[in-house]
Amino acid sequence: MYAQLVKSEGSKSRDEMTPEEIAFQDRIDRNEKIEPKEWMPEGYRKTLIRQIGQHAHSEIVGQLPEGNWITRAPTLERKAILLAKVQDEAGHGLYLYCAAETLGVSRDELLEKLHSGNMKYSSIFNYPTLTWADMGAVGWLVDGAAIMNQVPLQRTSYGPYSRAMIRICKEESFHQRQGYDIMMKMCAGTPEQKAMAQDALNRFWYPALMMFGPSDKDSVHSAQSMAWKIKMNTNDELRQKFVDQTVPQAEYLGLTVPDPDLKWNEDKGGYDFSEPDWSEFFAVIAGNGPCNAERLGARVKAWEDGAWFREGLMAHAAKAEDRARAARHAAE
């Protein structure tokens, strides 16, 4: 997902837990929310910082592939919609950084880790957006996959994270629909437009499936995160749900999912489908995706070029405070 490979701290059996840890786990099991500054195991705190941080980084890096097309949107209305959507992603990044900050890490520290490559963001944003149909595919598939993960996370155990997810889900409800709306227009359009839509689906299908992270059998970090309710479903559960939901939507558009082995399985009540190429996934995570260098480079440049702006405003605020203090003294 937006946090695909979150390294979790080791899980413990109840026998190994301290009394504090047992009381903490009991609260989570009773669905109580954990709030900032309350006692929490160090592993819980660290795992959450990694997960919320990755999620926040994904939102702001996720601005770039779509931001790419704002200046080329084909109508004024599409331009406004896309701009509003990409703006929301900045907002969601902001909410999530704030949630992470309640755990004792600053936004600048998290950004520093992103810029130095020590923290990751979702692999999906390292794929290029080559045509306008990609704006449709990203909204439909990428936001669709994200929503699948974010809706259950509204119930996560950490209060600030849960509240950020509630706000994000509410704002994001239009994102997937605007993407599908673009796809419908393209598929009802000229043969060239329809071909563009099919091409976008071909390129984004497997990267979208990768968003849920490696298969459960290879996903070593899930158990503890699920016990702590900071991960609500397994990767494979969500991936299956996504495929089952998306295939009929593709059929409605008259598009073909690029998987010759895709077929309905009556027994399990879901589709059988091909796994993505996991070697590609790990290559992208390791920095070798088609756009890794551009995406991270753009973020680093924005940050470095903006340093004088952030410093200038801090300096002015300090001066203004000094002047106000001097004025108060003079008045006394």
């Binding site: 919609i81 509003a84 929301d88 239009f174 629909r177 605007q178 599908y180 709306d181 409605y252």
Partner: peptide, 13 residues
């Protein structure tokens, strides 16, 4: 356009 109902998604979907 920030509201999901702005987009007409067919019932079948």
């Amino acid at each position: 356009y920030r509201h999901p109902t702005f987009y007409d998604i067919p019932d079948e979907i």
